[in-house]
């Protein structure tokens, strides 16, 4: 497994460097899509390398794929987490103090909802026609999976 770890690191670090460059060139837009495509490319690179070596090292593939997903999840949380946005608002205050009501301004029904809806629209989960919102087939598919998971784990939202 030592070799598997070394191999996965050899592909992971260049992928991170390319990702930093890509983010600098293209910004935050479609972050998830770009990140996933880059992760798939890195995994394909590893796979091709392993095939040329006639060594199907599944542990190395798992380490690289999962490591990349964990890396993306860190950024998804940094970008989307409501708690982190609240922390940033508090951190931006010189005194480091905010009254509770100040958070209503940062995340109220209207603004919080519109920001999320814009993001869902950008990622093609909904279509906004004038004031009417419709789910796309991509969203319907995703909700189908969520519904199965909620039933399986006996969850409520």
């Amino acid at each position: 497994m030592d070799q598997s770890l070394l191999l996965s690191i050899q592909f992971f670090i260049p992928a991170v460097l390319v990702h930093i460059l890509l983010c600098h060139l293209t910004g935050t837009e479609k972050f998830m899509l770009k990140g996933l495509l880059l992760g798939i490319a890195a995994n394909l690179g590893l796979l091709i390398f392993l095939v040329t070596q006639t060594n199907f090292d599944i542990v190395a593939i798992y380490l690289l794929g999962t490591g990349w997903l964990a890396y993306l999840m860190l950024f998804i949380n940094l970008l989307n987490s409501v708690t982190l946005k609240m922390l940033e608002a508090l951190g931006n205050e010189v005194s480091g103090v905010l009254p509770k009501e100040a958070f209503n301004k940062f995340f109220n029904e209207e603004d919080g909802l519109n920001t999320r809806l814009d993001s869902l629209s950008l990622n093609e989960f909904i279509i906004k026609k004038e004031d009417i919102i419709e789910l796309t087939s991509k969203a319907q598919f995703m909700l189908g999976i969520i519904s199965v998971l909620r039933k399986l784990f006996n969850m409520k939202s």
């Binding site: 990702h19 930093i20 935050t28 860190l74 950024f75 940094l78 970008l79 940033e88």
Partner: peptide, 21 residues
């Protein structure tokens, strides 16, 4: 602790040139 986490998060986002939604 909150100040530290906020700074760490903002530094990472700055290195990667990303902005919060």
């Amino acid at each position: 602790k909150g100040r530290l986490f906020n700074r760490m998060g903002n530094t990472v986002l700055k290195i990667w040139n990303l902005k919060r939604l």
